[in-house]
Write a protein that binds this DNA or RNA. Structure first.
Length: 295
DNA sequence: CACCAGGGTACCT
DNA sequence: AGGTACCATGGT
């Protein structure tokens, strides 16, 4: 089943490859992925966004919500602070969006993200889905695909089984999180009814979840746009651009982020992250891209 | 092939 | 409160 949308300021490729979701893969001139148990192929041509599902589909709310099609990007960009680096990132990647992902898949994925490259995270997530996800309907002659395994599916595994997916020391974290979520001891569905700080504290109760991962979950799956994940890339960029290369303390950096970037800081963060990362991953030019900053 | 990766924890001053 | 070794794995 096929559906078309007219979109404004939407950069599908940047959005799906910016390290906020880990299950999208190029297929021809489009992108294939799984959203809420449905296989979908997305393709963009100018202002037309085409979505194709494998089976019949009458209600497309799941897709519109995931892609945040109702959000007017210009309303977001207006909230950005005036800054050369940020303006450069927006000029280069205008249309980059924040998705609204499933909280459990997002939490589990970023629990596996610590100290790993994005490509490795994608591999581990793929392993998880293949082993314990449910098969999803795909087009004829297409390779099989699986949904992201629910908490109950992972909660009854052993640490050893999870380690077999190459997640290493993160295995007990994921296992424990799956059990806490299954038991309702951590209610990730209720995060959106809390304020940002309270939701953050709730996530921080999970072992293996620190400030960075909590902010990723709140930004990518709950919709708290002030959540500002600080990873090694962002820390480098902020130190270089706003602190003249000096390495600010965590508290100092936190305060600066809140005061300078404001209520849509997380959105700005995604532009800075994608811009910084896209400058380096094309190893074509051997320019001294990142003079290593002391941490 | 060293180095580092969308970090966090435990343990130390 | 602020610093650091260590964690498991593999991409580049």
């Amino acid at each position: 089943m096929i559906r078309h949308y007219r979109v404004e300021d939407y950069h599908l490729a940047a959005t799906l490859s910016s390290g906020q979701a880990f299950r999208w893969r190029r297929l021809g001139d489009g992108w294939e992925g799984v959203i809420g148990g449905r296989w979908v192929l997305l393709r963009q041509a100018g202002n037309i966004l085409e979505a194709m599902t494998a089976g019949p589909c009458s209600d497309w709310e799941w897709l519109e919500r995931y892609l945040q099609l109702n959000v007017r990007l210009c309303d977001i960009l207006r909230m950005f602070p005036k800054d050369i680096l940020l303006q450069e990132a927006v000029r280069a990647w205008r249309g980059l969006r924040l998705l609204r992902q499933d909280p459990w898949e997002c939490l589990a994925s970023f629990l596996l993200s610590s100290n790993k490259q994005i490509t490795q995270i994608e591999q581990i997530v793929s392993e998880l889905c293949g082993r314990w996800g449910d098969p999803v309907l795909v087009p004829p002659d297409h390779e099989p695909t699986w949904s992201f395994p629910a908490p109950e599916r992972l909660a009854c595994r052993t640490e050893g089984e999870l380690r077999a997916c190459k997640m290493g020391f993160r295995a007990p974290y994921l296992l424990e999180a799956a059990r806490q979520v299954r038991e309702g001891k951590v209610d990730i569905g209720a995060l959106s009814s809390l304020d940002y700080e309270a939701a953050r504290q709730e996530l921080l109760r999970l072992k293996g979840v620190g400030e960075k991962i909590a902010d990723c979950v709140l930004l990518f799956s709950v919709g708290f746009l002030e959540a500002f994940p600080v990873d090694v890339w962002i820390r480098r960029e902020l130190a270089r651009h706003f602190f003249s290369g000096r390495c600010p303390s965590d508290r100092e950096l936190r305060r600066f982020i809140r005061d300078f970037f404001g209520p849509a800081g997380g959105y700005a963060q995604q532009y800075l992250f994608h811009h910084a990362r896209s400058g380096k991953k094309t190893g074509a030019d051997s320019a001294p891209a990142q003079p290593k900053q002391p941490n």
